[in-house]
Design a protein around this nucleic acid. Structure first.
Lengths: 340, 340
DNA sequence: GACTGGCACTCGCTACAGTCGAGTGCCAGG
DNA sequence: CCTGGCACTCGACTGTAGCGAGTGCCAGTC
């Protein structure tokens, strides 16, 4: 499978043209629009090889060629030239994110920004609790037997949960409980709290023990076990762009997938390092998304990762600029979080 | 415009058949499927009158009739027979909502339930802050100059906001501030707090004044002025049901509208009493939704209203059962809130 | 006067044939 | 190894014809 430079150039040209025009591209059009320095006939020969190797295909005889998922993959890996963001885009990002007042706001602005810049569906995961540390725990008496447990994480996330205590609980006890949980848990990563939480019960005077038991079980259950991941979504209307050509005419499966938080998390939440991840068409594990591509990355203050973000679009998307945009937005959001 | 009983029966039959089959209904089919006791010819005459009056129309000359928005309106107002929910549905609602652990959970479950039962797009507004009362205000020191303000409302909503203080603030001062704001604000409706909040600054010792000023301005701004309405959405995939027939082939405007919180709030947030509201096609003030219908109502504990919920679907929806479902879900959610 | 059967008419839908043209594969020659 | 030329394929489009669902109207009946 010798793909010489010219064949690669042809593939690149096909991808670029097809992404731009959305129509199968023929050999004549190619030599006209790109400086390949050869005739259409030569290009046709190259195309025949590329097709044999599975990088492009013909929708039907006598039509132009269209990249396959495999073709896009090769393009992304080896052929795409980086498109730096325009200054206008950089400014847009900064302006957009600057006014954010709290985490909710940051996430919402980010997801809208991403959707707008890439003109695709954007997904942003809230900073994961599993990757956060406890900054403060607050206990607020709601009634004699009810406390509101509020956890504030270093990533800015705030979670609350109503705790039904086993019996009436005096103000002094609340103070004691509060002091204790904070002493033991502040500054530890949530993923590492379970043993500490379990140990809490033993650290407390016998009369406080039932209260602490309830409290710690709620802590464990809510904040660690079913660790509340949250997701923001925007730009679904962009799916309808490009008529019914993309997604082979049916938005159904895509919309269904986007409704499932679990699916979204799988898409953008599985990030370990901050590297870009591009999944093209068939490479997606989720069947409903076999007609789509996902570009995602992790984000976080500095070089740590607290969550993922990305966009979803048709396989025929403009990968270079999408990748550039996603990367840039992730970096800005990370910087923003670092300022806190 | 004399519409005698039979003509109304014909209209009802047309609506019911069209909703069921999604195809223009002709005179023959009508007499076959309904006991009208007259011949197709007679029905045709009635149809001619109904068409003249604007209740139905013909997509093209030799096709059957289709209800107009006006026809649906008449149907909803005078012709539809109430469809009681099946016991299975009631049980589904109860089971679905029973396990909810907090407000977020209640809202999410509700919106999914609604989407699933009606097979349409469901929208649920979180209990409006404007309609909530303050249950407790908590101040949590985050750093020497930063406080986290947490407001817990009687409706279960919890809002937080980071407050950047003008200078370092000792623990005792925090206690004082906390006591004061709680004393003055607890149990008042948020919509009535502004004068009280403004008065706070004067009630405080001179050295606390700058701190209180900052605090009260944040309170005012965040919790009252741009009163954070929140919305949950589910079931967008249901828009693709019925192929491209509904929404005249383009989901675009609908999806766009659903992305705008402001629009959604307008749709379901404007509820004063707990009565059902049905907006059919053209009756919608939002241009993008001229091809859709919205069924909404208020909900809340007892007879008070704290927020709105509803569904959006094609004008050719099954109004009776949609209305019944929305009403039932609203009632269940209200009861659930009352238990807190 | 209201209803009915009958009939002519309309018009979208489908099938079919014919034409056009973009694009290809292949081959012979440079 | 590249190129120009040529035959071929096949989708897209056009026009025509037949079908059938459904209508509007009218004359006749109860």
């Amino acid at each position: 499978m010798g793909l010489d430079d010219r064949k690669l150039a042809v593939l690149r040209a096909i991808v670029e043209d097809y992404v731009a025009t959305q129509e199968p591209v023929g050999s004549r059009a190619l030599v006209e629009r790109h400086q390949l320095g050869v005739s259409p006939a030569t290009v046709r020969n190259d195309m025949a090889v590329l097709e044999e190797e599975g990088y492009i295909r013909q929708p039907h005889t006598s039509a132009g060629r269209v990249p396959t998922d495999r073709g896009y993959r090769l393009f992304v890996d080896r052929l795409s030239r980086v498109k730096p963001l325009s200054p206008a885009e950089r400014r847009a990002i900064e302006r957009f994110l600057l006014g954010a007042v709290d985490l909710d706001d940051v996430v919402h602005r980010t997801v809208r920004l991403l959707a707008q810049l890439t003109r695709q569906v954007a997904v942003v995961q809230y900073p994961s609790l599993a990757r956060s540390s406890v900054r403060h725990l607050e206990l607020v008496p709601i009634s004699t037997t009810r406390l509101m447990l509020v956890m504030i994480a270093d990533t800015g996330r705030v979670e609350q949960r109503l705790v039904e205590m086993p019996g009436p609980i005096p103000a002094d006890d609340v103070t004691d409980l509060r002091r204790l949980v904070n002493e033991k848990l502040v500054d530890t990563r949530l993923s590492e709290t379970p043993p500490l939480v379990q140990a809490l019960v033993d650290e407390v005077s016998p009369d406080l023990r039932p209260a602490m038991a309830t409290l710690s079980s709620v802590l464990l259950e809510t904040l660690v076990e079913r660790h509340e991941e949250r997701i923001a979504l925007a730009g679904t209307a962009n799916l309808t762009r490009g008529g019914l050509l993309d997604f082979q005419g049916s938005l159904r499966p895509i919309l269904e997938a986007l409704e499932e938080e679990v699916v979204l998390l799988k898409l953008i939440g599985e990030v370990e390092e901050s590297s870009m991840r591009v999944r093209i068409g068939d490479e997606n594990e989720i069947d409903n998304l076999r007609a789509a591509s996902v570009v995602s990355t992790g984000y976080g203050p500095g070089s740590t990762i607290v969550g993922g973000l990305g966009v979803l679009g048709p396989t025929r998307m403009d990968y270079p600029s999408t990748i550039a945009t996603v990367r840039a937005v992730a970096r800005y959001v990370g910087d923003l979080l670092a300022q806190n």
